[in-house]
Each structure stands twice: as C-alpha cells, then as structure tokens.
Write a protein that binds this DNA or RNA. Structure first.
Lengths: 198, 198
DNA sequence: TCACATTGTTGTCAACGTTAACATGCTGTA
DNA sequence: TACAGCATGTTAACGTTGACAACAATGTGA
C-alpha cells in the first residue's frame, strides 16, 4: 500500500555503509562514526551493519583497506609518465601523496593506525606495501637513468616519504606556521633531490 | 571501625587520575581509557573525575599538555651542553625526540591530535611551541658558529623534525622494514647535516 | 519445489559519558 | 574557636553505543 516501502533487503548495504562511513569519518573522526548513526542515515535497523562487518574495527579496517587502494591508484597515476625526468616525477609523486592526505586527513590517520596495529589484517598490510611501492620504483628508474645516486632505492624513498609524512604530521590545516604546505613540499623535495644527485 | 576506611576525600585525585590515565592510555589507547575504569582503579566513584576534568576531552588535553612539558624538558636536557659542536647536538636532540616518541607512542599521538584540533586550548599550543623551540635554537647557534648554512633556523629545523616525525609515523614497533629506528635516525640526521653545511 | 544460506529486524544487555541532587570535609574569617 | 562557604566526593538516573541472540524475510541452487 505504501508508496515505496523499502524492500526488506537493501541490496547494496555493504557498499552504502562504506560510502557513508567515510563521509562520517571525515566529519567526526572515529568517535563520530557509529553503527547506529550509519543505520539511521541509511534507513536500516541498528544491527544490520553487523551482517557485513563483524564489529566496528572490521568496518574501520575495510575503510583503511580501500584508502590504501585509492592512494595506490592515485600515486600510480602520478608517476605513470615515464617520459619525464626523475625530478619531475618525484615532485608529482610528492604532490599527489600530500594532496591525498590533505583531502582525506581522517581516513589517512585511520590507515596508519590500522597498519601499525599488531594484529593488522594481512590484506591491509599488502595494500599498504603496494601503495608505498611507487616511491622505490621511480628511484630505481632514476638510478637506471643515472639521475639518482646509488643505494637501496627503498632506503632513498624512505627518506623522501619520511620528510613528507613528517611535514604533514607537524602541519595543521594544510599549513605550518602560516606557510602553505605546497610551498614546503617543493622546498623539501628540491632539497632532497639536491641531496640525491649522483 | 574498618581498618582503613578510605577517607571521604582522596586528597590527590587529580594527580592520581593523570598518572593512572597515562598508563591506561599506553595500554589501550583512547578507547581503553575510561573514567569508570580509572575510578575503579583508584577506588573512587565513577563520577568523581568530573570534579577535576569537565569531560573526557579535558582529561586528554591535560595529558597532552603534560606530555609536551615532559618532551620539552627532555629535549632541553639533550641540547644543554653548549660546548659540543652542532652535529653532536643535533644528533642528541634527534635521539631524544625519537626516544620519547618510541617510549610513549600513544601519548605522542594524543599530543599531536590535541595540537591539531581546531579548538585546542591555548596553554597546550604554547607548550607545544616551547617543546619545538629547541630545534631552531641549536640551528641558530650553529649558524652563529658558522657550522650551519644561512636561512631561517625555524625552517631548517622544520626539515629535520619533519624527517624524524615522518620516520616515526611510517615505522612500526620501533622498526621500519626490519631496520631499527636508531640506525635510520643516524642516517637521516647525517644526511641532513650534510645538506645543511654552509 | 523447497531446503538452506544470506540478509535484515526486534529485543536485550552491559558499559560508557554526562548531568543533577546530595553528602562530606576543609578553610578562611569573624 | 565557630561556622559559613566552597571544594571534593557520592548516588541515582538518562541517553547513547557496540554487541549478542532469536526471529523473519528474501534469494538461490539442487
């Protein structure tokens, strides 16, 4: 009789939950992300999310996993132009990395926390490693072209990403002491490039 | 009649709460830190903490504030020997910083989160700035002695601390890909010192 | 067709943060 | 010293949350 009596089965609840959860996460952080509020938003009962995620942590892990996959895709796109020289590629990679973190701060924090948990799921760790493999890749190619000094590319990449990650960690609202992050990224990457010349 | 009927007034509840809370924080993180559990541990009623902290966030902020104060004291001690050259002082500072974060990971995470909140209390921001003032200080002194290149010492210090902070963020359990953090700190600081020669 | 797995609902529980009203003990001042 | 006022702790209660169990509706494959 009712106009559109919601069908008993939602049909796409898992995806809807993840989508809604990510928005809620960026608004209110982990404490502001509750099964019950998600359920209210999606018009389902307050325990239905448990059919798709064993508990809240499982939902957070699923969000983190997707985060790493999206990050990996973005970084992959940033370095795909193999025609450019090393400096340009590293700068693009750095901007993509910092840009993603600036756009999704809460998600990124979740991703790092999940990765650092002692009992982090296997697939999450693997996705994380895939995402962070783009750095060593371009360093290795830079070495092959004689543009970068010798040494373990993973180690060189670590220094660059550590600097970027630290900059993000120390900064607030995309700025550090009033200086926009973009500017500081350029400065740091240029200094690193300088230090990594053969 | 009872042997030691706990006096009605605890006498030192605020300090006891902070002390117990910090231990609980390192064990179970923020979710594992509850007023009710703290109260049980200290043998007081579950609302008595509210006489000392308006809400849970206020307790967390107080923990973060003390964290910054302790960090500042530790960093201050690390650089107090003005007789040493710049390289030695920077390395000591770096080790002290990384050591503190390694020893108190949950507290440090709390400190950064608190500092980054839009409505972070004034005193907390000031304590944070005091803690991070030791870096620029030794860079400035290094410049005065002709040991460090020109430029805004705060900016130079930022690069160094960003690298350290990022290393910590990326690492897990004091290691990164099996390499102990100590080793990587040395490597990064030496590279930075190299890059900051006049 | 129909047994069975999947998905969603209802009802319930313990734990939590928070508030209000009340009890107790300390302290400064007359 | 007396006692008023305030700081500190307690009790009771409310609403929210994550989680579990039992049940209902739906989809699916033999």
């Amino acid at each position: 009789m009712k106009a559109t009596p919601r069908p008993y089965h939602h049909g796409n609840l898992r995806e809807s939950l993840l989508h809604t959860a990510e928005k809620a996460l960026e608004v209110g952080g982990v404490p502001g992300l509750t099964f019950r509020e998600l359920s209210r938003t999606l018009g389902v009962s307050h325990t239905s999310p448990l059919r798709h995620f064993a508990n809240k942590q499982a939902l957070l892990d699923a969000l983190a996993l997707r985060g790493f996959e999206r990050l990996s895709a973005i970084l992959s796109r940033a370095v795909k132009d193999r025609g450019q020289n090393f400096n340009a590629r590293l700068m693009k990679l750095a901007r993509a990395y910092v840009g993603f973190q600036t756009r999704h701060p809460a998600l990124c924090q979740l991703m790092f926390e999940a990765k650092h948990r002692a009992d982090a799921p296997r697939d999450l760790m693997e996705a994380s490693e895939r995402a962070f493999s783009h750095g060593p890749a371009i360093f290795a190619e830079g070495q092959a072209n004689g543009e970068v000094t010798d040494g373990d590319p993973a180690r060189l990449s670590l220094v660059a990403f550590a600097a970027l990650q630290g900059l993000i960690s120390i900064s607030t609202n995309g700025k550090f002491k009033g200086l926009p992050l973009n500017l500081l990224v350029s400065e740091i990457i240029e200094r690193i490039i300088q230090g990594f010349r053969p």
